[in-house]
Simulated assay, not measured.
Amino acid sequence: MGAVREALDSVRLVDHHCHGTVTADLDRGAFESLLTEGEAWPGVSPFDSPVGVAVRRHCAPLLDLPRHAPPVEYLARRSDLGWREVQRRFLRATGTDVFCVDTGYAPDRITTPQDIAEAAGGTSYEVVRLEGVAESVRAAGVEPDAYAQAFHAAALDAVRRPGVVAVKSVAAYRTGFDLDPARPSDAQVTQAARAWLGSGDRLDDPVLVRHLLWTAVDLGLPLQLHTGFGDNDIRLHRADPTHLTDWLHLTAGTVPVLLLHCWPYQRQAGYLAAVFEQVYLDVGLTLHYVGPARAGAVLTEALEITPFRKLLYSSDAYGVPEFHHLGALAFRQGLAELLQKRVDSDELDLPDALRIARWAGRDNALRVYRLRNERPEGD
């Protein structure tokens, strides 16, 4: 093991974006459905994919199984242990101190931020998903001309809850980013609200999504934005973060903007982080889907021009705690591989590499979310 990997393994991570896990024991169908962003098709098992192979290779030993254990044996052992013990083992293995948990996506019954913290022996904070706030305002009943004020008030109430450190939008899913970047007028919001409030649909009106993004700026907290890879509800070409360029010009000097996931646009995200002071990025979700074997390649592209204070770690794990473990493992292995190569070729000296590793794994997130419980190295 190289010096960089040894140092990275000792860093207590800050997972700046993740979700809870399902609070039930899972049969094969349910488990496989959570292994994929797509669907578990008849005759095509998600175990026969890069992430499925990574689970059998890297997660099986934590369940006291041999590496590459067959799916039947893996799932039987998982059931024998029970979901609580499985969660505890995988979350403890991540070496994560802090979890920032998006609580806005819960089609299944999942663990809370506090549940995650207790299982991992760490600390948790909440990330408020603003589309959910907007949809709760509609559900409560509001007149079109009062929608803007009601949404702002509800969002303000949400971010004032104890432990909230950021807001998030899934505009990439709802409309894509190729939107008019300007703040919509009151009249435009009222007109759009009139149509949406009577529709019963999720929030996908372009004017109201623009209004949501500008409201996020007004709230003053870091704003997380899903970009790139997602399930088949997304239109990937519209989730390219460079569509945000004009909006980023207009919002310069306001709030940090955290570009989540990014694949296959990690280079575009790196460009934005290099030219806009407020932009940061991660490649969470991507890493457990490509697996530790390819994590270094993705991180290499993400860091081609990204300033080292702009890369954060996240797992974006949802549903199964295996993803928390794989995300942390792939991040440590991939970043160590990248940095060690640069040290070995004399592109970096070792102290610089160790500082970059700590920044990406921990200190950058502590800084952005103002969670500093210690002085970040290099300050």
Score class of each variant (00 low, 15 high):
6 E>D: 14
6 E>K: 13
9 D>W: 06
13 L>S: 06
13 L>M: 12
14 V>Y: 01
16 H>E: 05
23 T>Y: 05
24 A>E: 15
26 L>R: 13
26 L>G: 04
29 G>F: 01
34 L>Y: 06
37 E>W: 10
40 A>T: 14
41 W>N: 05
46 P>D: 03
47 F>H: 00
51 V>P: 01
56 R>Y: 09
58 H>K: 00
59 C>V: 12
61 P>D: 00
65 L>R: 06
69 A>T: 09
72 V>E: 15
73 E>A: 13
74 Y>K: 00
92 R>W: 01
96 T>G: 05
100 C>E: 03
119 A>G: 02
127 V>E: 04
128 V>F: 05
129 R>F: 08
129 R>K: 11
135 E>W: 02
142 V>W: 04
146 A>S: 15
147 Y>E: 13
152 H>F: 11
157 D>P: 06
162 P>N: 03
163 G>H: 05
165 V>W: 02
166 A>C: 06
169 S>W: 04
171 A>Q: 07
180 D>L: 02
182 A>H: 10
183 R>T: 14
183 R>Q: 15
183 R>M: 13
184 P>Y: 10
185 S>C: 06
198 G>L: 01
199 S>Y: 11
201 D>G: 13
201 D>E: 14
208 L>A: 02
215 T>G: 03
220 G>A: 08
224 Q>E: 06
235 R>G: 10
242 T>N: 08
243 H>L: 11
244 L>I: 08
255 V>E: 01
256 P>W: 07
259 L>I: 11
261 H>I: 11
264 P>D: 09
272 L>A: 06
272 L>H: 13
274 A>Y: 07
286 T>D: 01
287 L>C: 04
287 L>R: 02
295 A>E: 00
296 G>D: 04
296 G>E: 02
296 G>R: 08
306 T>F: 04
307 P>W: 07
310 K>V: 02
311 L>D: 07
313 Y>D: 12
316 D>A: 04
319 G>S: 00
322 E>N: 00
326 L>E: 09
327 G>V: 13
328 A>Q: 09
329 L>D: 01
330 A>P: 05
335 L>Q: 01
338 L>A: 14
341 K>F: 04
343 V>L: 07
347 E>N: 05
358 R>Y: 00
360 A>T: 13
362 R>H: 14
363 D>V: 08
375 R>Y: 02
376 P>S: 05
378 G>T: 11
378 G>M: 03
378 G>F: 02
